[in-house]
Design a protein around this nucleic acid. Structure first.
Lengths: 216, 216
DNA sequence: CACACAATAGGGCAGATGACGTATTGGATA
DNA sequence: TATCCAATACGTCATCTGCCCTATTGTGTG
């Protein structure tokens, strides 16, 4: 089976180097290349018939972490392997949080890169041994992550939090209304307001976002 | 440089099989073998001039997790790779907590095992791609470690998992269909089947349950 | 060779949901 | 005091969702 991939890197020379590495393998086709995240997103708008993205992290306009978040939100079926020169803990953790399926270093051998791509498409995860070690350390010591606090202040009212909690249990409007001794109309209105505040458009997104911000 | 390793497994036949696999590589010497943890600890008492241990998990007397804890406590310089047939989340997480430097499955190719040993001694971590993926999921969703027991009964197909992943992003049927190049009818059918298997009745419940069981 | 089952696809229907309106009340705050 | 806003409530409408039905194709297993 032929694999369609994209390469995103702000250094066009490096894009070329990666293409070169992959040129040995005829089961991989580089369908897109982009110099930053928003360029990639534009291309995906036109056609998202793509299997995997090799993504740099440090890029202008839209960096690799942000881009990964966007792509995974909209096209979760597309696998993403971070391919970067840096391997500091923060990048790794943020990339994982953003939904990356692997994390490799640019100096990687062509064969290992090829293996990593295949393994990732096969439902595994590609990782440098040094990166793997860092993820193990992060798992052992979860406290080392809790540093980054939320920047944007989301303030939901007490009632809205209550509604959100009920929502998170998978209850319907009418049941929530019944539970909180409210009219269904009121519950709907609360949920409308919650959506506006969280800037989401569905129950699932609301619950997800609320969880990520420790609101519930 | 010659590497001195130990193999700990309650199945002497499997010890032999691993030795066989490693016999191709003349930079590795199997110094000890043991049928359980305490046997290994005794041997280490006499001489702990050892680089790395390949450790089974399920063993009588002293299991692999406990043994790893002991060894890492007393001889932190000795690397330990879990080498086991099972890869359930609880084992992985406990092994990591105990201080394991890698986690491989017994069916691994000789070359990859050799690589894993070398990488680990080189300051990295050895991991199967499937294990790597599990560690990533654990990092993303740390509360999903408890509920492993009742997972046996839940078996979703690969396609169903894909659909669930899309669901979890809050996408609608039509968008999911578009992303996976399926008809909306098919997506609906998949979701129907998922609901039956998970015994739930809404998107949120499905995503919740899937998360708790580390299916996504 | 059956048989089971995953993956695909479509039809139909009742009820739920999301997004828009409007409106009243009471408490907080400028 | 005047204004803001949370909390309450209702109406409408297009769309989505959950649940029922049937059906074909391919793969794998006993």
């Amino acid at each position: 089976m032929n694999v369609k991939i994209a390469i995103v890197d702000d250094n066009s020379f490096l894009i070329h180097a990666i293409k070169e590495k992959l040129s040995f393998f005829d089961d991989i086709t580089v369908k897109y290349t982009a110099l930053n995240g928003s360029e990639l997103l534009q291309q995906l708008e036109e056609s998202h018939n793509l299997d995997l993205i090799l993504m740099d992290i440090e890029m202008p306009v839209l960096n690799g972490i942000e881009t990964t978040q966007f792509v995974k939100q909209k096209y979760p079926q597309i696998k993403i392997i971070m391919l970067t020169a840096f391997d500091n803990d923060e990048n790794i953790f943020n990339a994982i949080k953003a939904g990356a399926d692997g994390y490799l270093l640019k100096e990687i051998d062509p064969e290992l890169l090829h293996n990593g791509i295949r393994e990732t498409l096969n439902g595994g995860a590609a990782m440098n041994p040094s990166i793997a070690l860092k993820t193990l350390k992060l798992l052992r010591n979860p406290n080392s992550i809790e540093n980054e606090r939320d920047k944007e202040e989301i303030s939901l009212s007490k009632r809205e939090i209550e509604v959100l909690e009920q929502l998170s249990k998978g209850l319907s409007y009418t049941v929530i209304a019944d539970n909180l001794f409210l009219s269904p109309s009121t519950v709907r209105k609360h949920i409308e307001n919650i959506y506006k505040k969280l800037q989401v458009h569905s129950k699932i997104e609301a619950v997800q976002k609320a969880r990520n911000h420790n609101l519930i």
